[in-house]
Deep mutational scan, measured.
Amino acid sequence: MTEYKLVVVGAGGVGKSALTIQLIQNHFVDEYDPTIEDSYRKQVVIDGETCLLDILDTAGQEEYSAMRDQYMRTGEGFLCVFAINNTKSFEDIHHYREQIKRVKDSEDVPMVLVGNKCDLPSRTVDTKQAQDLARSYGIPFIETSAKTRQGVDDAFYTLVREIRKHKEKMSKDGKKKKKKSKTKCVIM
Results as ranks from 00 to 15, higher is better:
Thr2Pro: 06
Thr2Met: 11
Thr2Ser: 08
Thr2Gly: 09
Glu3Tyr: 07
Lys5Cys: 06
Lys5Gly: 13
Leu6Asp: 06
Val7Arg: 02
Val7Gly: 09
Val9Pro: 10
Val9Ala: 10
Val9Cys: 05
Gly10Met: 03
Ala11Ser: 09
Ala11Lys: 06
Gly12Gln: 01
Gly13His: 13
Val14Asp: 14
Val14Leu: 12
Gly15Asp: 04
Lys16Met: 02
Lys16Cys: 02
Ser17Tyr: 03
Ser17Thr: 12
Ala18Pro: 00
Leu19Tyr: 03
Thr20Ile: 11
Thr20Lys: 02
Thr20Asp: 14
Ile21Arg: 12
Gln22Asn: 08
Leu23Asp: 02
Leu23Gly: 12
Leu23Cys: 14
Ile24Asp: 06
Ile24Glu: 11
Ile24Arg: 01
His27Lys: 11
His27Val: 07
Asp30His: 09
Asp30Lys: 05
Glu31His: 02
Asp33Ala: 07
Asp33Ile: 08
Pro34Thr: 01
Thr35Gly: 00
Thr35Arg: 00
Ile36Phe: 09
Ile36Glu: 00
Glu37Arg: 00
Glu37Ser: 00
Glu37Met: 00
Glu37Gly: 00
Asp38Trp: 15
Asp38Met: 03
Ser39Leu: 11
Arg41Trp: 02
Arg41Glu: 02
Arg41Met: 06
Arg41Thr: 04
Lys42Gln: 11
Gln43Ser: 02
Gln43Thr: 02
Gln43Lys: 03
Gln43Val: 02
Val44Pro: 01
Val45Glu: 03
Ile46Thr: 04
Ile46Gly: 05
Ile46Pro: 02
Gly48Tyr: 08
Gly48Leu: 05
Glu49Asp: 08
Glu49Val: 07
Glu49Tyr: 08
Glu49Met: 13
Thr50Leu: 03
Thr50Phe: 02
Cys51Gln: 03
Leu52Asn: 04
Leu53Gly: 02
Leu53Asp: 01
Leu53Ile: 14
Ile55Glu: 00
Ile55Trp: 00
Ile55Phe: 02
Ile55Val: 08
Asp57His: 00
Asp57Pro: 00
Asp57Lys: 00
Thr58Ser: 03
Thr58Pro: 02
Gly60His: 08
Gly60Pro: 01
Gly60Lys: 01
Gly60Glu: 03
Gln61Ala: 13
Gln61Thr: 11
Glu62Tyr: 04
Glu62His: 08
Glu63Tyr: 03
Glu63Asp: 12
Glu63Thr: 08
Glu63Pro: 04
Tyr64Gly: 13
Ser65Leu: 11
Ala66Cys: 14
Met67Lys: 09
Met67Gln: 00
Met67Asp: 00
Asp69Met: 06
Asp69Ile: 04
Tyr71Glu: 15
Tyr71Gln: 15
Met72Thr: 13
Thr74Ala: 15
Gly75Arg: 03
Glu76Val: 11
Glu76Met: 06
Glu76Ala: 05
Gly77Thr: 07
Gly77Tyr: 14
Gly77Pro: 04
Gly77Arg: 01
Phe78Met: 14
Phe78Ile: 13
Leu79Met: 04
Cys80Phe: 14
Val81Trp: 04
Val81Leu: 12
Phe82Tyr: 11
Ala83His: 10
Ala83Lys: 06
Ala83Ser: 13
Ala83Met: 05
Ile84Pro: 14
Asn86Tyr: 01
Asn86Arg: 07
Phe90Tyr: 14
Ile93Gly: 03
His94Gln: 13
Tyr96His: 09
Tyr96Asp: 02
Arg97Val: 15
Glu98Thr: 03
Glu98Ser: 10
Gln99Ser: 07
Ile100Met: 15
Ile100His: 08
Lys101Asp: 14
Lys101Gly: 12
Val103Phe: 04
Val103Gly: 06
Val103Pro: 01
Lys104Ile: 14
Asp105Gly: 13
Asp105Thr: 06
Asp105Lys: 13
Ser106His: 10
Ser106Met: 14
Glu107Arg: 10
Val109His: 03
Pro110His: 10
Pro110Lys: 01
Pro110Tyr: 01
Met111Arg: 02
Val112Glu: 01
Val112Thr: 05
Val112Phe: 05
Leu113Asn: 01
Leu113Phe: 12
Val114Tyr: 01
Val114His: 05
Val114Met: 12
Gly115Cys: 12
Gly115Gln: 07
Gly115Asn: 06
Gly115Leu: 11
Asn116Trp: 04
Asn116Ala: 14
Lys117Asp: 12
Cys118Pro: 05
Cys118Asn: 12
Cys118Ala: 13
Cys118Gln: 07
Asp119Gly: 09
Asp119Leu: 03
Asp119Asn: 10
Asp119His: 12
Pro121Val: 10
Pro121Asn: 14
Thr124Trp: 11
Val125Gly: 10
Val125Tyr: 11
Val125Leu: 08
Asp126His: 08
Thr127Ala: 10
Thr127Tyr: 08
Thr127Ser: 10
Lys128Tyr: 09
Lys128Val: 08
Lys128Ala: 10
Gln129Asp: 15
Gln129Ser: 11
Gln129Thr: 13
Ala130Cys: 12
Gln131Thr: 13
Gln131Ile: 07
Asp132Ser: 09
Asp132Leu: 08
Ala134Val: 13
Arg135Tyr: 15
Arg135Ile: 14
Ser136Arg: 07
Ser136Ala: 12
Tyr137Glu: 05
Tyr137His: 08
Tyr137Val: 11
Gly138Asn: 11
Ile139Thr: 06
Ile139Asn: 07
Ile142Pro: 03
Ser145Thr: 13
Ser145Val: 07
Ser145Leu: 02
Ala146Ser: 01
Ala146Phe: 00
Lys147Glu: 09
Arg149Val: 07
Val152Arg: 05
Asp153Val: 06
Asp153Pro: 07
Asp153Glu: 13
Asp154Glu: 11
Asp154His: 08
Asp154Asn: 09
Ala155Thr: 11
Tyr157Lys: 08
Thr158Phe: 13
Thr158Tyr: 12
Val160Arg: 08
Glu162Gly: 07
Glu162Leu: 08
Glu162Val: 05
Glu162Lys: 12
Lys165Ala: 10
Lys165Cys: 02
Lys165Gln: 10
His166Cys: 07
His166Asn: 12
Lys167Asn: 12
Lys169Leu: 12
Lys169His: 14
Lys169Ser: 13
Lys169Thr: 03
Met170Trp: 15
Met170Gly: 12
Lys172Asp: 02
Lys172Met: 12
Asp173Ile: 15
Asp173Cys: 12
Gly174Asp: 13
Gly174Glu: 15
Lys177Glu: 12
Lys177Asn: 10
Lys178Tyr: 10
Lys180Asn: 05
Thr183Asn: 15
Lys184Ser: 14
Cys185Ser: 13
Val186Asn: 15
